[in-house]
Design a protein around this nucleic acid. Structure first.
Lengths: 182, 182
DNA sequence: ACTGAAATTATGCGAGC
DNA sequence: GCTCGCATAATTTCAGT
């Protein structure tokens, strides 16, 4: 029986990181991050409160913006997008001011799953799914490198993706090792 | 009104990538990847079929393994984990056979959100959330670099994370630009 | 924060196309 | 074979306490 996820990640004694949230809120957040498909009744049982209480907490967390929308894992290979890649992008130093504008264009592209703004030599990482090596090349050569603000790119193929949260099934409930999803 | 997401990402004419899935299945998959919180009734309306039909499709997609579990976006800053990073890890050439074992240990760590197996110079990327720079340093110096199979690591701080799917609200339904979640 | 009632939704089955 | 509509079961939701 693993200890509570939040506590384990925080590795602290009794200090509450955010005064607005208590232990029950954190439990609910981790539970929904792990599996957002649970019914409110099942969620309530997992965190040991009445369904109405769990429901009220979830609503409050959503309104506070702490809890966002949920996303289902999809096997992109099944929808004709078997090739996944992470592309590191570096902008020209003078172009750093337009980084947000440029990233917004990226997330609007249908093949883009994630954009991570990072610190260091690169400016952001773009995770994409494509139909083929050709489409990946066209993406990197087209929307990405053709823009004059881009200084350089570095493409890494993604062979597999594991989710840390999936292995944190506490109490009752088991999850087998994640397959090719995500 | 944007054209269908799957079609846009695939950029094809009329070829179905997977014989098992039809257009309705793909629409449902994209819809749930974008927002898994929709009720079955609302999902049915979005894809223009009866609720029972949508329900049957979702069940079939889940049993086929094409549709996986859902995950709620959580603002990790609110739960005391404000520092996010992506760490590129390279293993010693001789240790490549144990890459899966090592990655499994990584995803079991409470601070790890994702592990991406990649091709190229690095072997995988690890996305983590931490309470502080000190905890991040301890993670990189401890579980990661202390293992003799690790040849080198490169840590990039994550300033922000945008999700491509959120901007693909078709038909009715709008999503404002994602904030700090994820 | 809990209990109980009312409204909404999910689920399974048989009919029709 | 796929979709639909209805009946039932389960869940959400909102009173009051």
């Amino acid at each position: 029986m693993p200890r509570r996820r939040a506590e384990a990640a925080q590795q602290r004694s009794g200090v509450r990181p955010t005064p607005g949230l208590d232990e029950l809120d954190e439990q609910i957040l981790w539970e929904l991050a792990r599996d957002a498909d649970v019914t409110n009744a099942a969620l309530a049982e997992r965190v040991h409160v009445a369904p109405s209480t769990a429901h009220a907490r979830v609503r409050a967390l959503r309104e506070a913006g702490v809890l966002g929308p949920s996303h289902a894992d999809v096997d992109y290979r099944a929808v004709g997008l078997p090739l996944q890649a992470i592309i590191s992008v570096r902008l020209r130093a003078q172009a750093r001011t337009v980084i947000k504008t440029f990233a917004a264009k990226m997330v609007g592209h249908p093949n883009v799953l994630d954009v991570f703004f990072v610190g260091g030599q690169d400016d952001f990482l773009v995770r994409v799914v494509t139909t083929s090596p050709e489409q990946l090349r066209d993406f990197v050569a087209g929307p990405l490198s053709s823009d004059p603000v881009v200084a350089s790119t570095h493409t890494q193929i993604v062979f597999d993706h594991l989710r840390g949260l999936d292995h944190w099934a506490d109490a009752d409930g088991f999850d087998e090792l994640r397959g090719p999803l995500g």
